[in-house]
Design a protein around this nucleic acid. Structure first.
Lengths: 339, 339
DNA sequence: CTGAAAGCGCTTACAG
DNA sequence: CTGAAAGCGCTTACAG
């Protein structure tokens, strides 16, 4: 691989001049520059980005840490993150943490070692060591779909889960439902808690109380939704609608209902949260609360770029709105019809 | 950020010694080493991987070029690629080409500039310039789900699409079908061509001929499958089964059939290809040809690691087998039953 | 076992 | 406008 030294020698000039041509520095004669550029072409010269990074203390790479690229949620965000960053000349190195604390830490260490310019992260574990690492970074960090812990002053980009849940409930109320079951995600998850809070507060605002038999928490998969529906119907049969904290749970519930010949929305209404692709399938048509996933990725990347440009380590967080998408799994309470 | 120089000064020793401690080189006294390591801890020292890369001519990063991380196919592969590479101490920088030739080329150039150690690629455009770039790389390359062009001696990892298609057809034959329609992917795609070839050859092997009215090519989405089914039923009504070249197409076809109250598999059998998650949904249960996606990613990464270890620029390609997964959309021909 | 020196491929004041 | 020199933070023969 030829270096600027080779080019300089070939042309009988100094490496400084070659460097100036390469970086189109103004202090160079047009003809000299052209000669250098020609020689570079002849030699098939490619600048060594590693050497450049070393001296400029800027690697032009951004780290992206997500739990699992296989989750449509994260792949959608990762797609737009890459798009805007790459348009700005950055490379993105990505890591699936698989929600393993050691892998999260390993990533943060390599951010330090590789001199990455900034990172976008969706951490699941933030022990003291990880937070300490984050503090040592001294580069722009944005949290994506997670809130930064106390004492870490970095911005986040997320959706307003609480408000989204309230919207779903309001919609159900507007259809006359007041016995509404809830299929929750695990209680330790932040989003799970927020959506549950939306459910509870909405009921309370109307002077209703959640029937404890109408609330279940399990996992976040279709199987869990299926199981949850089974238990809900058993314990809270007067329920006319179900709010599932995510689409997978909602679809699992729909599956149970279909298997038991309970018509949706005739006998029971179901609403989800997320708006996954599958929610729109002909057989499903789940009404749900849409999260702008790609937009989240895009915003996170744009925010990071701004911080990089302005050389700030903090910025205003972004809370995006959800969007109620009404399909065919909710109808007015008490009115029996077949789907 | 402290450097080895700071550590050396602190301890009154040379940077060489510090370096030796860092790389646990044998030529160092145990006590010296311990002192250095302690000082590093005190200083919160992190080695600068950029400097190390420059001198070692090895960046410990691998490039991963895929069309679109949002496609479950690629995200599954990307997941396992990252997993095995990161276990081997590599970082992966990933790029979505969005099937844009300029972006593919831009990626290859940055591979050169960033001195990446190897790449795994799924290119869609390989013009002379790109091939030339690939030649200049001089690092291990593995093609993932694509075949390298003539004259480029690099290994690939893919599934045997032709064989998979034959298996699907044989299954349909075994159920007594001999009027089988085909919903193809765009003709220019390699996988599309291979699966079509499997369809045609299978018919020919049985002395059958494809009815030209029974073959359509359009896109690769559900909408296309829906449209294709519409046209197939119109032009080739005697058909008893349909082989859709991918699951999305198959699901679109199922949707059309459901809307027109044509029972599956009672009146018509449908088989897909890919085994997407959705194919297993309660309402779909599409019989299909499964591709081991994660395994493809894993194998590609392992192959690359081997090449890196053995310092070879080429290796044996890997053709993985598909796997027929029988669900509920195919049954014996001529026997009418409701689903 | 340890240190001085050269060098990886660049960029960037500084002097002219 | 151009060049010589220093330096980014390491590693690696080489000499002792």
């Amino acid at each position: 691989m030829p270096t600027i030294k080779d080019i300089a020698k070939e042309l009988g000039i100094s490496v400084s001049t070659v460097s100036r041509a390469l970086n189109n520095h103004p202090d160079i004669r047009q003809e000299t520059k052209q000669e250098v550029l020609d020689a570079m072409k002849r030699f098939n010269y490619t600048p060594n980005a590693v050497a450049r990074s070393l001296i400029q203390r800027k690697s032009n790479t951004i780290g992206l840490m997500i739990p699992d690229i296989t989750d449509p949620f994260f792949s959608a965000m990762a797609h737009d993150v890459e798009e805007v960053l790459s348009d700005s000349g950055y490379q993105v190195v990505y890591v699936n943490t698989s929600r393993r604390p050691e892998k999260e830490k390993r990533f943060l260490i390599s951010v330090l070692e590789r001199k990455m310019d900034g990172i976008i992260v969706t951490p699941d574990f933030l022990d003291e060591e990880a937070i300490e690492l984050l503090h040592r970074l001294k580069i722009p960090v944005v949290f994506l779909r997670r809130r930064p812990p106390q004492g870490l002053n970095v911005p986040f980009v997320d959706v307003d889960h609480y408000k989204g849940a309230c919207n779903a409930m309001d919609y159900l109320f507007s259809l006359g439902h007041n016995q509404i079951g809830f299929i929750g995600m695990p209680k330790y998850s932040f989003t799970g808690k927020e959506r549950y809070r939306g459910y509870m507060d909405s009921l309370n605002r109307l002077g209703l109380e959640a029937d404890p038999r109408g609330v279940t928490f399990d996992g976040r998969t279709m199987q869990c939704g299926y199981r949850a529906m089974d238990s809900l119907m058993d314990k809270y049969p007067s329920m006319t609608a179900v709010f599932a904290a995510n689409d997978l749970l909602g679809i699992g519930a729909l599956e149970w209902l279909a298997e038991h010949n309970i018509s949706v929305p005739g006998q029971i209404s179901v609403i989800g949260f997320d708006n996954l692709e599958v929610a729109n399938l002909h057989w499903i048509k789940l009404s749900t609360v849409a999260q702008p996933r790609k937009e989240m990725g895009r915003k996170a990347a744009e925010l990071l770029m701004e911080m990089l440009l302005s050389n700030e380590l903090t910025a205003e967080s972004i809370l995006l709105d959800t969007n109620l998408v009404i399909r065919q799994t909710c109808s007015e309470a008490q009115i029996v019809r077949t789907r």
